[in-house]
Each structure stands twice: as C-alpha cells, then as structure tokens.
Simulated assay, not measured.
Amino acid sequence: MKERAWTPDEPVDVGLVVGPHRHGGGDPTWRQGRDGAIWRTSRTPAGPGTLRVSLKSSTVYGHAWGPGADWLLETLPGLMGGDDDISGFTVKHAVLEDVFRKHRGLRIGRTGRVMEALVPAVLEQKVVGREAWRAWRWLLNRYGEPAPGPAPEGMRVVPEPGVWREIPIWAWHRSGAEAVRAKTIATAAWHVEKLESASTSAEADRLLRALPGIGVWTSAEVRQRAFGDPDAVSVGDYHLAKIVGYALTGEKADDPGMMRLLEPYTGHRHRATVLIGLTGLRPPPRGPRMPIRDYRTF
C-alpha cells in the first residue's frame, strides 16, 4: 500500500467530485464504504490500480494498491479538481445562489483516462441508464481483472485497449450492447494513445468526433471526466435541456434553447448544469418512460 495526503486550497466535496465516474449502483469500478471513503479502480499507464479516497479535516487522503499506485497518488489532486479554476464563475440566476453556497466543494476533476470514460458513454448513447449499466457490469465482470489490494468484493479494473478490440460480437450481444456500439468502442481503442495525449479539451473534442459513432454528446461526456472540462455541455442528452429550461425559466427547453440560457456561463457551462441538477428541480413527468430493452439470447 502507498499513501498520500493532499490539502486543497479550497473546500472539496469528495462525493460530488468523484461521483460522475460512477456508472450505476453496481459499477464494478466504484464503491463507497460505510465510512464514507470512496474506492475507485483505474488502468493507469503503469498498470491496474485501486485508489481509496477519504476526507478528514479538509485534507484528502489517498491510499493506493497495485502497479498503478504511484500514478494514482501522483494524479490525485487532478482527480479531486485541484486544477479546476472556479474564479471566473459567477451565479447569474437566483435559483442557483443557494445551491452554489451549499456546494462550495463542487469541483470538476479529471482522470486522464479516456477509455474509462468513453466505453460507458458509448454504452449510454440513446438508451436508458440501467440498460447501459447492465452492459458495463457484464463486460467488466467478464473481461476486466480483479482490483488490486483490499478492495471491496467484486471490484474490477477496466480491460486494456487491446482487449476491447478483441471482444467477439457474441459477447457484446450477451452484454446487451448493440453491434454499432461495439464497433465504436473497438475503433476508439485503436486510437486511445492519441486521444489521451491531447493537450487540450478542444483538441480531444476534435479527435473524438473524428471517430465514427462519436458525436457531440459522447465527446462532452468523455471530456468532462477524462479532461475535467467545466464547459463541455452534454448537448443531445435526453433529459438535460428540459431540466435546464425548467429550472431557469419554469418551461422545458430544447438543446438550442438550453445553450442560449447557458450563454452567461460560457467557460463554465457544464459546471452550471451540474449545479442545476443539484437544485432537484425537474419538469413534471408526462408520457411513458423509455423502456429498458433486453434482446439478449442465452
């Protein structure tokens, strides 16, 4: 085991910062212990690793295991939003004032690991979350590897890019993922080194969207997590525009309307949508929910 203590200049809410890297309640790469500590696995440039993150008296403590332990501890401040510059952000809508005060520890962290963000984002394209999360669990349980160290039972590390490229089509089908998503993930796995070497989020956006099957929404989801981009808005999300419109105006909006409402937050538009989500304001549900599909054969 290796460990590190890091005291940020500003308050940090560990749960809010690391929460976006969790994909469903049974995500094999993410657990929260009864003591509040968060466990997370990652395939680092040095190999697989397990990280335990906790907060005590304004200091973040990291404990890490496996070949990737040193890398995980070295990048701990980035994961916890240490590079996130919030100085240019100001609240422009009264509805956000209280939630901004309550969640001063919100930061947009970055992992630097593209495949860990890209695979679940592609699985989540145009389907309900539970359908995508089911596929994510199945794939990691079959093709991932056990988490190093004393990680909670069932935790897994995402496969290497080469493994994603070689998963047979029948296995994708068993997971519940459609062939088009399997092809998108396999193609991206050939380009992961170039994607992770991008020097800016804008460059990463250009590289990601040059790949077949990756559009504005998927690119934004990846850049939020892997690059810590506070301005990457998930345009095309099934719910987001409606929630933003309702919270800020009392009426649902479409994507162009959402972007007009978020214009005063340029540079921090993703941050603004996270805060809007924390208000809990949602438009009244109307119509049937999207069904959870299951076309697998066993």
Score class of each variant (00 low, 15 high):
residue 188 A to M: 04
residue 184 T to P: 00
residue 120 P to D: 14
residue 105 G to P: 04
residue 97 E to F: 00
residue 176 G to L: 01
residue 182 A to H: 04
residue 225 R to V: 06
residue 111 T to P: 01
residue 18 V to N: 01
residue 12 V to Q: 04
residue 5 A to W: 14
residue 111 T to Y: 00
residue 275 L to P: 03
residue 284 P to I: 12
residue 228 G to P: 03
residue 25 G to P: 15
residue 38 I to M: 13
residue 160 E to I: 11
residue 45 P to W: 05
residue 294 D to L: 13
residue 152 P to N: 05
residue 93 H to Q: 14
residue 161 P to Q: 04
residue 278 L to W: 01
residue 218 T to Q: 08
residue 84 D to R: 01
residue 259 M to K: 15
residue 121 A to C: 11
residue 9 D to H: 05
residue 69 A to I: 00
residue 151 A to V: 00
residue 68 G to S: 12
residue 116 E to V: 06
residue 217 W to P: 10
residue 264 P to K: 06
residue 119 V to P: 02
residue 200 T to Y: 00
residue 176 G to E: 10
residue 171 A to V: 07
residue 116 E to F: 09
residue 272 A to E: 00
residue 46 A to R: 15
residue 158 V to Y: 12
residue 174 R to P: 00
residue 150 P to I: 06
residue 205 D to T: 09
residue 208 L to C: 06
residue 295 Y to R: 14
residue 239 H to V: 09
residue 295 Y to F: 15
residue 53 V to C: 04
residue 203 E to L: 05
residue 282 R to Q: 15
residue 105 G to F: 01
residue 22 R to W: 02
residue 78 G to K: 15
residue 231 D to M: 07
residue 182 A to I: 08
residue 249 T to G: 04
residue 197 S to K: 14
residue 184 T to K: 06
residue 169 I to S: 15
residue 252 K to S: 10
residue 219 S to K: 07
residue 70 D to L: 12
residue 181 R to P: 02
residue 221 E to V: 09
residue 164 W to R: 10
residue 35 D to N: 07
residue 152 P to W: 03
residue 129 G to H: 00
residue 122 V to F: 02
residue 27 D to A: 06
residue 23 H to V: 11
residue 30 W to E: 05
residue 291 P to F: 00
residue 271 R to L: 07
residue 60 V to D: 04
residue 37 A to T: 12
residue 130 R to W: 09
residue 52 R to I: 01
residue 169 I to T: 14
residue 278 L to I: 07
residue 190 W to K: 15
residue 256 P to E: 13
residue 121 A to M: 14
residue 101 R to V: 09
residue 26 G to P: 08
residue 277 G to I: 07
residue 279 T to I: 14
residue 41 T to M: 06
residue 227 F to G: 01
residue 152 P to I: 00
residue 68 G to Q: 02
residue 104 R to A: 13
residue 109 G to Y: 02
residue 5 A to R: 15
residue 97 E to M: 13
residue 287 G to S: 13
residue 23 H to F: 09
residue 298 F to N: 07
residue 90 T to V: 15
residue 138 W to Y: 15
residue 262 L to I: 09
residue 279 T to L: 13
